[in-house]
């Protein structure tokens, strides 16, 4: 179930949103302007699509801007206010930014899927142990139904289904008919 991806270059959005040649995600005002533009782009996507938010050209980042661009965007996504059932995969968040982004996510109890430099997706932010385990199992398989994971998980199918449901509500795995799909590199690399 590979879906055509759409990539948003966050640095290009930054420059367009503030009409300056900035390369750093700094200040709450800037973050708000960038988020509003990303929201508009996400809303124009077709229903259920995957969007990659590419941070690879971003230099520096501060808490206030990360709170606006990452945390508030994720809250809107989880509430399905902007993505029309779509998913967002973050990419190009370097090791330098990771600690800061993770701290912002943990403060809000949020999590995201980030495509690392090695091409593998990684789950960062606040998730329970069961959520992380289920996410890793789906990622390793590409897709899985609750019944596929129940034995390895060591809990009943209902419990696994509940965990996977939670992950899909948090937009961390994609729900298909009867199974769940990883937000995978193959879906965004083009």
């Amino acid at each position: 179930m590979t879906m055509a991806p759409h990539t948003i270059d966050v640095c290009a959005v930054l420059r367009s949103a503030v009409n300056q040649n900035y390369g750093n995600l700094l200040t709450r005002d800037t973050g708000m302007a960038v988020r509003h533009q990303i929201e508009r782009e996400l809303m124009s996507n077709r229903e259920g699509g995957i969007t990659a938010l590419d941070f690879s050209s971003i230099g520096l980042m501060d808490y206030s801007c990360a709170d606006e661009v990452v945390a508030k965007l994720l809250v809107l996504l989880q509430n399905d206010d902007i993505a029309r059932g779509g998913y967002v995969l973050f990419r190009g968040i370097g090791e330098d930014h990771l600690e800061l982004v993770e701290s912002v996510l943990k403060h809000h109890g949020l999590a995201l899927v980030c495509l690392c430099e090695d091409g593998n997706p990684r789950l960062i932010g606040r998730v329970s142990e069961a959520e992380r385990r289920a996410w890793e199992m789906v990622r390793a398989r590409g897709s899985a139904a609750p019944a596929d994971l129940a034995d390895e998980f060591g809990f009943g199918e209902d419990f696994v289904a509940e965990v996977l449901d939670g992950l899909s509500r948090r937009r961390l795995v994609r729900r298909g008919s009867g199974e769940f799909f990883a937000l995978d590199a193959a879906d965004v690399v083009q």
Partner: peptide, 8 residues
């Protein structure tokens, strides 16, 4: 999300 600057 506000007030986290000092924490950072």
């Amino acid at each position: 999300g506000r007030g986290q600057g000092f924490k950072g």
